[in-house]
Design a binder for these strands. Structure first.
Length: 580
RNA sequence: GCGCCCGUAGCUCAACUGGAUAGAGCACCGGCCUUCUAAGCCGGGGGUUGGAGGUUCGAGUCCUCCCGGGCGCACCA
């Protein structure tokens, strides 16, 4: 179903074009900034009036006259206000009939795009040499939410988990594995249970023992030249590491599967081809025996030129080369319209460069939009990157376990009468949801402070608050008096009912914005406001105690609220509970 | 040195991408439970949006310059 905002944008925009005789002009309709301004407001009149050198209020009056003649059923009234805004109030029975369509067809709450695209989303992408740590959390969670939102909007989504499974540190790990295997008492699976520990042990061996370091380097060469034994160990290592990732994804309720893997090693045999293309386009310069590209748009003011290294002086390749090969694949083979990289903001220069090279060399098609969906760093409450007290990187699995533990204590404190097993289930969902929501609800581009107390709070814009709101709604619907209500909204007399209903109808509008700009916090804000409006409705309007007609209508509204909350949270990757 | 990002209430964050009187939560103060989950709701105080200019009907948002912070800049990813 076309959203209200789209209809208004089209109708008011059209009227504006007709009245002003300007072809390209936008109505710029947004939801009203204050309730007394109505439901929506058109902000675009002033800009057009400016171009016409006309009084904005006069132009607004002409637009309103035009619109009133068209008699759009959705609109109750227009009002010109301030310097030239058009405030729009919607018609109640139209709102009700829209809502009733959603009640009977909940899948329509989020409308499908008219222009489906093929969109590659590269996210999570852990380094398989180590265990997943807190640094992988944001990208994994934000990426997964975007994927859900884009998919639900009707796009063709190709997930790509670009795991780091190649490169120098694997030589070190393999050498260390071999060393361990030689000694009798060790068994491999147990050693690999703690990847982080294993990596650190290998690393300290590498740093302290020259012979071992040399052995590691030889090991890389053996691996890359296809040595059977090395490759067998490598594959074993990768498998073990991937199963760690799977466990994390499962715990986090993240949709990434094995078939979404797009490991770096996949591109090994295409790297020389990438270099050949770049050479053919005369982009390569030899500098200090390395093959690099100097891009004119990356020249600093002082003439300092930033190079992109494509091939090292020893012939080895770097991640820029791999990324170019991946762009080639996503562009030519997957035929993507958009390719999103949900990656740490600190890599923005790298992506600027790689995207520029890809475009300049024709490795990326003309149509593909390459977008770095950057996110900020997770900080501790001291404002520095999040670490343990001893200064170590926090393993993701430990962080999640702590979240669940804290949630269990909280649930027990709030509701000690609940069965222990049930509390465990609730704690698991609430704990994970809290961590995810804390991440999603903040503007992704800025660094954010990780704080247990705020994310596990039941107050404010948090997962527990939203989940509680949902559970509360569901409990109403489970009452005996709530059974067999006729599933239609018929009354919208109370202001709280109306505000709630209009909000529900806006889910799709928010989803459209997020699908475009990739800021999931906008969906979080929406859901928080939705839950707040429900609470206000709940306080102000008796549901079960009202006379039958009102009761039925309100129950339908309650049911639609539940549906909207549930779907919205699902698009964030957050599961709801019937009872808390 | 050069480049990118950021600076909003005591704290954590919003502000629909240039719109009307900058909003929430925490903390603080005061109300509301024999009544659908009080894990809730209502009200109050708290701001020169780091500073100074500029652009325009209109700036937290755009431009310039300062101040303060974070992060990147040649063979790691």
């Amino acid at each position: 179903m076309t959203t209200i905002k789209s209809i208004l944008n089209e109708q008011v925009g059209n009227a504006l074009c007709r009245v002003s005789s300007i072809e390209q002009c936008k109505a710029n309709v947004i939801t009203a900034s204050r309730p007394e301004f109505g439901d929506y407001q058109a902000n675009g009149i002033m800009k057009v009036a400016k171009r016409l050198k006309q009084s904005p209020r006069e132009l607004a009056a002409a637009v309103v006259t035009f619109l009133e003649k068209k008699n759009i059923s959705l609109v109750e009234s227009y009002e010109i206000a301030g310097p030239g805004f058009i405030n729009i109030r919607l018609n109640n029975s139209e709102l009700i009939s829209r809502a009733n369509v959603f009640l009977n067809n909940p899948e329509l709450l989020v409308s499908k795009t008219s222009y489906p695209k093929t969109i590659v989303v590269d996210y999570s992408s852990p380094n398989l040499a180590k265990e997943m740590h807190v640094g992988h959390l944001r990208g994994t969670i934000i990426g997964d939410s975007l994927v859900r939102i884009l998919e639900r909007s009707g796009h063709n989504i190709i997930r790509q988990n670009h795991v780091g499974d190649w490169g120098t540190q694997f030589g070190m790990l393999i050498a260390y594995l071999q060393e361990i295997q030689k000694s009798k008492e060790n068994n491999l699976p147990r050693q690999l249970l703690d990847l982080e520990h294993f990596y650190r042990a290998a690393k300290s061996r590498f740093d302290s023992d020259k012979n071992f370091a040399d052995e590691s380097r030889r090991s890389v060469v053996k691996l890359q030249s296809g040595d059977t034994e090395s490759n067998k160990l490598w594959a074993q290592f990768i498998e073990e590491s991937l199963s760690h990732c799977d466990a994390i994804y499962d715990k986090l309720n993240v949709t990434l599967k094995r078939e979404d893997l797009d490991a770096e090693s996949r591109y090994n045999n295409q790297l020389s081809e990438v270099v050949r293309i770049l050479e053919q386009k005369n982009l390569i310069t030899i500098s200090d025996e390395a093959k690099v590209i100097f891009l004119p748009n990356f020249v600093g003011k002082d003439g300092n030129i930033l190079p992109v290294i494509i091939q090292k002086s020893d012939g080895g390749y770097l991640y820029s080369t791999t990324d170019l090969a991946a762009i080639k694949f996503r562009s030519a083979e997957l035929k993507a319209d958009r390719s999103l990289y949900v990656v740490d903001a600190r890599q923005s220069l790298h992506f600027d460069q790689v995207f520029s090279v890809a475009k300049a060399a024709g490795i990326a098609s003309k149509k593909i939009s390459l977008e770095h969906i950057a996110y900020g760093t997770m900080m501790g409450n001291d404002g520095k990157p999040f670490k343990t007290r001893s200064g170590d990187i926090v393993k993701l699995t430990e962080l999640l376990d702590e979240a669940i533990k804290r949630a269990y204590e909280l649930v027990t404190a709030k509701n000690p009468a609940l069965d222990k097993e049930l509390r465990k289930v609730i704690a698991e969902k609430v704990g994970i949801a809290s961590v995810k929501y804390a991440d999603l609800s903040k503007n992704r581009t800025s660094d954010y402070i990780f704080e247990w107390s705020t994310m596990l709070s039941f107050e404010g814009n948090t997962a527990p608050y939203l989940m509680y709101a949902y559970a509360r709604i569901k409990s109403i619907l489970k009452k005996p008096e709530a059974q067999n209500f006729t599933a239609n909204i018929s009354s919208l007399n109370e202001i709280e009912e109306r505000l709630l209903l209009v909000k529900i109808l806006q889910l799709s509008e928010v989803i459209q914005i997020v699908a475009e700009d990739c800021y999931p916090n906008q969906l979080c804000n929406y859901l928080y406001e939705l839950a707040g409006l429900f609470m206000k409705f709940y306080e102000a309007c008796p549901i079960l105690k009202s006379e039958e007609r009102i009761r039925n209508s309100r129950l339908a509204l309650v049911s639609l609220t539940a549906e909207t909350l549930n779907q919205g949270l699902d698009l964030l990757g957050i599961e709801t509970l019937e009872q808390m």
